[in-house]
Design a protein around this nucleic acid. Structure first.
Lengths: 262, 262
DNA sequence: AGAAGGACCAGTGGTCCGTA
DNA sequence: AGAAGGACCAGTGGTCCGTA
């Protein structure tokens, strides 16, 4: 029901041959998700803009982006490159219900969660390459994976963004019902993404409370979540809540309006 | 039998109150090994010499070491501080048989392996502190653990040394029989520590061959070994051997005199 | 104002090489 | 010569803050 072919509205889809030649043979993809958009436009020239000598002042590089302008079958252009000039930022997220497509220059939360699935697939590819070469094999989404994703053409994936919303994705993984209801409630109230993001902490802490407060164990027990580092703030919230309540019974600890330090 | 009270011959034993006050309450030690030397001399002034501003030239600091000169009950002084002046390096290792005590200004291999057990205990303490504070909990012997060990007075533990001999300890853990025989053979032949260390690779690669070449899995499956990073060179040797043999049968791959790239 | 992400930074894994 | 370990370095996890 929530998984109709949302069709990704030009989400910078991966090209069919996204990766460097040397690593192609090792690529055994990680099983398509429902969001997989196959056969979207070809992007190949992302390598640029990688190692600037690190200026700490501004960088109005203004190098006019020379990529092709093909944007297929969709005038309702949700993402970057709407018309011309430089590589743009991704459109900001808005709170959408499950299955809802964001209109205008916005991205929805199904798309956000899809990015986490894509990162997982990139990790699996990096792992396959590492195993093949007898090198250290990452178990988490590391810098190396983000670098790989960028080289593979997924320039819309970056570390600060993914780390920012990890706990939202965690709620989606651990209790999709609660996650969906939260999205509907915050959409109805017209809240912005930041408010929704903040609100995702509380149900997660409640889940942790029910499971002995071990948020690391909770992440590690879930196959799609185990590849993500536990966010510092979520860890701190769990710790703070455990210390303020929890000393008595181990189950059904109320997550009341205690002073959360954030 | 090999675990008589070897009594550590003044191995810079930990003091009875080795750790900083703030972390004392969290210290739940990791169960004493047979080598534990309780109640050796007190050392408290190691903090010094820690954060020099990193000069890349020489550092003949020549600060005359002001620690006490107590060396208890043992004129056969195996370790540093034999008489006077600065903090000395540890005595070099020699190849000893299981249970054999090194004479002269040397350390034996039982002592070497004992250092790995000590590191494990320091890791357990660091883990307990981290859990207590709700912080990230290391699963391996990290820089943080080495720093902790140093602060706790175990100045004879350092990262380059421990990393250098990890695979020797691995063999000791995974097949003590083979490890012991190798020690006896190399002692008899009068080989030096470096030669023994090199020789430890081959039986490990043979073990890996029998178990599907997954050296990471082999390390992780062993409770005392899983806390150590797989050494790069061992990983490379396993990879190289798997590729030169192994394509045929998965068991009983001969570890012949193939060109090992080291 | 709310949000995306380039760029920075402290501390890591890894080990070289000046030292004894 | 053989060996111990201080010190270095490339690349990490983490996230701030100049940007749009």
């Amino acid at each position: 029901t929530t998984t109709n072919a949302l069709d990704a509205l030009s989400q910078e889809g991966l090209s069919e041959e996204p990766v460097m030649q040397q690593e192609k043979e090792a690529m055994v993809s990680g099983g398509g998700s429902t969001w997989d958009v196959t056969g979207v436009g070809v992007r190949k020239q992302q390598q640029r803009r990688r190692r600037r000598p690190r200026m700490k002042t501004n960088r109005h590089g203004h190098q006019s982006d020379d990529r092709e302008e093909e944007e297929e079958e969709n005038e309702d252009n949700n993402n970057s490159g709407g018309g011309s000039c430089e590589r743009q930022r991704e459109h900001p997220f808005i709170v959408t219900e499950p299955g809802e497509v964001a209109r205008g220059k916005k991205n929805g939360l199904d798309y956000l969660f899809h990015l986490y699935e894509q990162c997982r697939e990139f990790l699996i590819q990096v792992q396959n390459i590492a195993k093949d070469r007898g090198e250290k094999c990452p178990t988490k989404v590391t810098n190396q994976v983000f670098r790989y994703a960028k080289k593979a053409g997924a320039s819309y994936i970056n570390k600060p963004k993914m780390r920012h919303y990890v706990h939202c994705y965690a709620l989606h993984c651990l209790d999709e019902q609660v996650s969906n209801e939260l999205r509907r409630a915050f959409k109805e109230r017209g809240e912005n993404v930041g408010a929704w993001r903040q609100a995702c902490y509380k149900p997660l802490v409640a889940i942790a409370a029910r499971q002995g407060w071990d948020i690391d164990a909770i992440f590690n027990a879930h196959p799609r979540l185990s590849i993500w580092y536990v966010p510092t703030k979520l860890r701190q919230l769990c710790h703070a809540e455990r210390n303020s309540h929890g000393a008595a019974a181990s189950t059904s600890v109320s997550i009341g309006n205690t002073h959360l330090p954030f």
